[in-house]
Amino acid sequence: MGGLLEVGDLSLNFGGIKALEGVSLSVAEGETLAVIGPNGSGKTSLFNCITGIYRPTSGAIAWQGESLLGSTPDAITRRGIARTFQNLRLFHNLSVLDNLMVGRHLHFAKNLANAMLRLRGEEIRHRRRCEEIVEFLNLEPVRKSRVGDCPYGVQKRVELGRALATEPKLLLLDEPVSGLTQEEKEEFGYWVHEIRGRFGITVLFVEHDLRFASRLASRMAALDHGVKIAEGTPAEVQRHPEVIKAYLGE
C-alpha cells in the first residue's frame, strides 16, 4: 500500500442520489492515472472529495499515509494536491499573471507590514516562478490580459498554470481537454506528458475522450453510476465488457 493517495471504500450521497458507492483507488507516485466513465458517473465528485470540497458520507482518503478527511481545501492544497475544474473556475477580473500568482499564495511568507509598505522582494521571486510557467504554457502574449477576456483555450491553460504554480506533488485534472480543438488537445497532451516527465508530478485526470485518455495514461480506472467497474492498463479497461456496456448505453 505504498500509494501516494489511497482512496478506500468511498461513498457520497446527495439525498437519494448515490454519487459514489464504495470506490477504492490507489495512486502511485509518478504514474498518470486516468479516471473514465460516462456523464454523471461520479468522476467530478471523486475529485471534490479528494480536494475537500465535498465531505464523503463514508470511507477514507489517505495522503502519504495521513487522512485528508476533515481538512479544508486550502490545507489540502498546502499538503501538495492541486486541481483544475471541469467548468473552469478562474479569477476573471485578474490578469493571467495574477491568476498564476494566486497559485503562489501558499508559498508567500504573508507579512502584512511588507505588503502595506510595498516591500516586494518576495513578490519578485514568485513572479519569476510564474514567468517560467508563462513560458512553459506559451502564455507570453496574454500575460497582462484580463482572464475573463481570454478565449476558452487560453483559460484552460491559465487554470493548468495556476495549479502548477502551487508546486503540487499530485495534480488532478478534471476533463482537461473538453471543449478544445484537436490542435489544442495535442498541445495539452504534450504539456501533461511534460508535467509528469519534466516536473515529476503525479497526475490523476478525468477524461471523457477515451482516445486521449488511453494515449496519456499509464493506468486507467472506470466509474459508472458511482461504482468502480474496471481498473488496469488502458487497453484492458477499454476492452472490459462493463465499460463497453456503460459507454454504449449512454
Binding site: T51, G52, I53, T72, P73, D74, T77, R78, A82, R83, F85, R89, L90, F91, H92, N93, L94, D98, V102, G103, H105, L106, R162, A163, T166
Partner: peptide
C-alpha cells in the same frame, strides 16, 4: 479578489 471571483477556486489555491 480571488475570494470574490471564485471562493472555491481561491480555497483550492491555498487561500
Amino acid at each position: 479578489v480571488a475570494v470574490r471571483d471564485s471562493d472555491i477556486a481561491a480555497e483550492v489555491n491555498g487561500v
